[in-house]
Design a protein around this nucleic acid. Structure first.
Lengths: 218, 218
DNA sequence: GACAAACGCGAGCGGTCGCTCGCATTCTTG
DNA sequence: CAAGAATGCGAGCGACCGCTCGCGTTTGTC
C-alpha cells in the first residue's frame, strides 16, 4: 500500500530527479523571483502565480520543479541556512577568553548583520507570523540551534550562572538583535551604521555586569 | 451625484446609526469574538465567517454592524487605543527629575506590560506585517505618538544630546520593549516576571550611561 | 394593534489562489 | 534521425473568502 509512496519518497531523496541544465537554471531563477516576492509581500500574501510571473514563466512551469508553494520557501530557507552556516558558522563559536566582550559582541553582530542585509528575504521568512507546518519546523530548528550557540557562549562568559538564567539571557540577546535588525533594515547609509552600533551598545551594556567577575585585562 | 454619498458619510459620523440595545450588545459580542480570532490567527488569516461563527451569529449579521473586515479591526483598535490612553496615558508623561532612572523605567514598563498582557490582541494587531491600508495609518499614528513621548522623556533626561540621537535612542528603546514583550507573552508565572525584569535591566543599563551627567542622588 | 425600522439568517455571487492537466516544444540518448 | 524524457505553457478546476441580498423575526412608537 504505502510501499509505493515510501519508495517514491526514498527515490526522491536519493535521486532528486533527472534534471537538465535548463531545469537547474529555472530553479535558481524561480528561487530568486520567490525571494523578491516573499520580501515585499511576506510568505502568505505571495501568490505562486506572482512568483511565476516575476520569474517570467507560467504557473505550470513553476509546478514542474516544486510540488507546492511551501516547498519553494523550504528550499529557499534550506539554501539560506546552508549559506549562513558555511559563511558564518563560526561567528558564535567558542570565544577566546582573552577577547574583550566588546570585540566578541561586535564581530558576531557585524557578521549576522552583514548576512541579513545581503539576504533580506531571510528575515522576511523567519520572522513572519504566517509560516505554515513544515516551515515552522525549519524555523524552530534554526532558532534552537542559534539559541544553543548563544547559551554556550554565555555559559563560558558567566560560569557561575544558573542554566535557567543563561537561557533567559540568551533569549533576551536574540530578541534585542532581532528588533535591532528590524531597525537596521529600515534605515540606510550612515543611519544604518549608527543603528548597528546601538545594537552592540545595548548588548554590551546588558551583558557587561553579568560577566564582571571575568578575568579583566590588565 | 456624490452629494448623496457625502451626506450619508457625514450623517454616519454625526449619527452613527439608529441602534437598539440588542445591536450594541451584538457589536461588543462580535468585537470580543474578533479579538479572540485575531489573536490566534492574525488579521489576514482570520476570516469574517470564522469571526461570525465564534460570536455565534451569521455572516449577514456581522455585516449588519460592520461595513467590511477592516472596519472590525479598526473599531477594535480604536477602543484599545482609547482604553490605553485613559488608563496609562500618563505613563510616559514628563518625568520628575528627582525620580531615579530605574524607577521611571520600571513603572513605565510595568504599566505597558500590564496593558499588553490584559489585551493580547493589541500586540497581534499592531505587530502583524499584514495590516492593510487604513489600519497601517492607525498603527503609524500610535507608533508616532508613543515614539514622540519617549523622545520627550529622553530629551529631558539627556539635555545635551542631538535630536537625531534622541530619536534613534527612542527607536531602540521601543524595539527592545517590543521584543521583550514577545518573550513575556510567551512565558507564564515566575518566568514571565523574570522576563519583565530583564526588559527593565536592558533599558536601564542601555540608558544609564546616556543620562550619567544628570543630577545624581546624594 | 399597526407600521416601520432594526435585527437576523444563510445560500450564494464574484473573485482570488493553489494547483492540475493536456498538449506543444526542446533536449538527450542510441 | 527516432524515441522518450524533461521542459514549457495557460486555461481552468475546486476551494475558500469577503461580502450581498432577499426574506423572515423582533423591537420601538403611535
Amino acid at each position: 500500500m504505502s510501499d509505493t509512496s515510501e519508495k517514491e519518497q526514498a527515490r526522491e531523496k536519493e535521486q532528486p530527479r533527472r534534471r537538465q541544465a535548463r531545469g537547474e537554471r529555472r530553479i535558481a531563477q524561480l528561487l530568486e523571483a520567490a525571494a523578491r516576492v516573499f520580501c515585499t509581500s511576506g510568505y502568505t500574501a505571495a501568490s505562486t502565480n506572482a512568483i511565476a510571473r516575476e520569474a517570467g514563466v507560467s504557473p505550470g512551469t513553476l509546478y514542474q520543479f516544486f510540488p507546492n508553494k511551501e516547498a519553494i520557501a523550504i528550499e529557499l530557507g534550506d539554501r539560506l541556512v546552508h549559506e549562513m552556516r558555511a559563511a558564518y558558522g563560526e561567528a558564535l563559536g567558542p570565544v577566546d577568553p582573552a577577547t574583550p566582550l566588546e570585540e566578541a559582541i561586535g564581530s558576531a553582530v557585524d557578521r549576522f548583520i552583514t548576512f541579513n542585509t545581503e539576504h533580506p528575504v531571510f528575515f522576511a521568512l523567519m520572522h513572519g507570523p504566517d509560516v505554515p507546518g513544515r516551515m515552522a519546523e525549519q524555523h524552530d530548528q534554526l532558532h534552537t540551534t542559534v539559541l544553543g550557540r548563544i547559551e554556550d557562549l554565555l555559559a563560558s562568559l558567566m560560569p557561575g550562572a544558573a542554566p535557567a538564567d543563561v537561557t533567559r539571557t540568551a533569549h533576551v540577546c536574540l530578541g534585542v538583535y532581532k528588533s535591532g535588525l528590524e531597525l537596521v533594515l529600515a534605515h540606510e547609509g550612515a543611519e544604518r551604521v549608527a543603528y548597528v552600533q546601538e545594537i552592540k551598545d545595548v548588548l554590551i551594556r546588558y551583558l557587561e555586569p553579568l560577566v564582571g567577575e571575568r578575568l579583566g585585562r590588565s
